[in-house]
Amino acid sequence: MAVSGRDAFRSELTSIAHRDGRVVCLEAWSLYRDHPFEAAHPDRFFSLPAGGPVLAQMVKGLVAAGFRPFVVVGPGGTAPGRAVGNRWLWRACVEAGATVVLPPEGSGEGSVEVRQKTCVPLCAPCGEEETRAVVRQVARSRRPYCLVLGDGPGPSWPYRPNGTGDEVPLVAQESGVLARTGARLVSVGEAGTRLALAARATAPGLGHAHLVYLDEVRLAAAAAELASWPGPSVVTAAAWMLEEVLRALRARTPGHAVSGVLAPSREGQADVAGVLAAVAAFKGP
């Protein structure tokens, strides 16, 4: 059974907290059930569904005391009627030194500001193994991150670490080596990766590059890496990610045709025909 990004995060963070007594989890979300972190480390778990300024102050105090806080924001935000991923809240937490976890449906509101903070990586990992690797990478780092994680089962992405370490690469490749001719798919996020995998199941000859980082600096570096590969690209991503990835690729892959296909957020609605049509459009009549 596929594990959701949130569940993979909770499990991995709980394991890390066994080894690192500085790790603290704060959930600004009242809908959690049987949280493994709370069961294992009740003295370092806080549920603050209406946190707001109180949550931000707690983060400042925890960081000042030498702890590593992870703040989880869920659907519906931190108060009834408030937008998911309230900008003031997550910005205050990130600036205080916390890693913030946002749901895909609310990440667009704050993602512009995250992308402009060059010291804050914005990650949208896909699948259990890649999500766990990102969490381990965050735990090793001294900087805050912003993670976008879903609550539903993610697609089974064949994650491979970068080199011999556990670092998540800027550009991951599904089949080891991207095809050096023809069109390639560039997937982002769970919805985009699900669509790309469905398209490759129909057309296995397509190359597939997968991106995890969406902040300005790392997205630009990923685009520069993709520029070394000839051929056009078809980007598959959810709405809030698609335009930014298209903009980055078009700016940094001169001479390469780039188009995009919007990936539906719900499983079972993959527009494979739309992806194949976009690929075919590069070939001309």
Score class of each variant (00 low, 15 high):
residue 4 S to C: 02
residue 198 A to S: 10
residue 174 E to S: 06
residue 90 W to Q: 07
residue 152 G to P: 02
residue 202 T to C: 07
residue 174 E to L: 14
residue 7 D to E: 15
residue 213 Y to A: 09
residue 254 P to S: 10
residue 110 G to Y: 04
residue 89 L to F: 12
residue 207 G to I: 12
residue 52 G to V: 06
residue 47 S to K: 05
residue 197 L to T: 06
residue 172 A to K: 02
residue 250 R to Y: 05
residue 159 Y to G: 08
residue 205 G to P: 04
residue 105 E to V: 14
residue 62 L to M: 15
residue 67 F to H: 14
residue 183 A to Q: 05
residue 18 H to Y: 07
residue 87 R to M: 11
residue 217 V to N: 11
residue 142 R to F: 01
residue 274 G to Y: 11
residue 78 T to F: 11
residue 35 H to P: 02
residue 38 E to R: 13
residue 153 P to M: 00
residue 248 A to I: 11
residue 107 S to P: 01
residue 138 V to R: 01
residue 202 T to Y: 00
residue 246 L to V: 11
residue 131 T to Q: 02
residue 47 S to E: 14
residue 24 V to N: 10
residue 98 A to G: 04
residue 187 S to K: 00
residue 40 A to H: 04
residue 226 L to G: 02
residue 62 L to P: 07
residue 13 L to N: 08
residue 170 L to S: 03
residue 117 K to P: 01
residue 19 R to Y: 05
residue 90 W to P: 01
residue 154 G to I: 06
residue 40 A to Y: 02
residue 150 G to S: 13
residue 166 D to A: 12
residue 133 A to R: 03
residue 36 P to K: 04
residue 23 V to C: 09
residue 131 T to S: 06
residue 248 A to W: 07
residue 13 L to T: 02
residue 216 E to N: 14
residue 198 A to R: 04
residue 31 L to Q: 04
residue 30 S to K: 10
residue 119 C to K: 12
residue 259 S to F: 01
residue 101 V to T: 03
residue 74 G to C: 03
residue 26 L to M: 14
residue 124 A to I: 12
residue 176 G to N: 09
residue 267 E to M: 06
residue 67 F to M: 12
residue 57 Q to E: 15
residue 57 Q to H: 15
residue 137 Q to S: 05
residue 232 P to W: 01
residue 171 V to T: 08
residue 65 A to M: 13
residue 198 A to C: 02
residue 113 E to C: 09
residue 126 C to L: 08
residue 146 C to G: 10
residue 229 W to S: 07
residue 40 A to R: 07
residue 272 V to D: 06
residue 251 A to P: 10
residue 55 L to R: 03
residue 199 A to G: 06
residue 164 T to D: 14
residue 120 V to H: 14
residue 162 N to G: 05
residue 123 C to I: 10
residue 152 G to I: 12
residue 30 S to F: 07
residue 134 V to K: 07
residue 61 G to E: 02
residue 62 L to Y: 07
residue 200 R to A: 00
residue 78 T to W: 09
residue 52 G to K: 11
residue 268 G to N: 07
residue 93 C to Y: 04
residue 46 F to Q: 10
residue 116 Q to R: 11
residue 216 E to Y: 10
residue 142 R to M: 00
residue 230 P to I: 03
residue 261 V to R: 10
residue 137 Q to V: 04
residue 36 P to A: 04
residue 199 A to N: 12
residue 233 S to F: 15
residue 27 E to T: 05
residue 275 V to P: 02
residue 253 T to N: 14
residue 99 T to A: 02
